[in-house]
């Protein structure tokens, strides 16, 4: 047996716990969402197919999009210069629309490490990185990243040298932020695809750095 658990009463045949069915009454906001959605469809403002397509598009966004942007910036100096000067317009070149006022790309250097947080809510560049990780939305990260960013980064496994300035970006309004990490040593001659494969989500938020 792959999973030889003892408490068989609460486990499925595959050995995993059952998830409870959601048989409780709808919450106020669930009812409101259904009512508004049905009205919009009834009045012809949108269609069920459009809503389903939008959910699919949202689910298909992932940090791989951001990684391809970073890899291109690492290999194409002109692209990188344009990306730092105008994030949204330059992402549009790669068919990545950014639905914010502007995407601000912030570059890590030997002197400066950037890290992004949204203390007011959970603003996040979803078009580029997909849905935010749970920790990004939690009060602990949102409150501590602006108070003791080095300690928070250290808990992520990233210990920065004392002579590196930590630059926190509190994404409080209509901008969205992408951290452009430093290209690691030992990646000379790598293709864009090879480079993109080492660019993880957290490194584009500033909570990690890519490793070759």
């Amino acid at each position: 047996m792959p999973h030889d658990h003892h408490d068989h009463d609460h486990l499925s045949p595959s050995g995993h716990p059952y998830r409870e069915d959601q048989d409780g009454p709808l919450s106020y906001h669930q009812q409101m969402e259904i009512a508004v959605r049905e009205l919009l469809v009834e009045k012809g403002v949108t269609t069920k197919a459009e809503i389903a397509a939008q959910i699919t598009a949202m689910d298909n966004r992932s940090p791989a999009i951001g990684a391809s942007i970073v890899a291109k910036a690492w290999t194409d100096a002109d692209f990188k210069a344009r990306l730092l000067a105008s994030g949204s317009a330059t992402c549009a070149e790669m068919d990545v629309p950014v639905e914010a006022m502007e995407l601000i790309v912030v570059e890590n250097t030997p002197d400066t490490h950037n890290v992004v947080v949204c203390t007011l809510c959970s603003c996040y560049p979803r078009n580029i990185l997909g849905l935010p990780p749970d920790w990004y939305k939690q009060r602990e990260y949102r409150s501590r990243a602006v108070r003791e960013p080095r300690k928070v980064l250290s808990e992520f496994g990233l210990d920065l040298a004392d002579d590196v300035r930590v630059q926190v970006h509190d994404s409080t309004a209509d901008m969205r932020y992408l951290v452009l990490p430093m290209r690691p040593e030992g990646t000379k001659g790598w293709s864009e695809d090879q480079l993109a494969a080492i660019v993880g989500r957290d490194s584009m938020i500033g909570a990690a750095v890519p490793q070759a």
Binding site: R150, D162, V166, Q167, V168, H169, D170, A173, D174
Partner: peptide, 19 residues
Amino acid sequence: DIWGDDADPASDTLDAEIF
């Protein structure tokens, strides 16, 4: 600027969008 003398280190910086 934000946390006073017990900020560690005091020279780290924070940018926020303010209307």
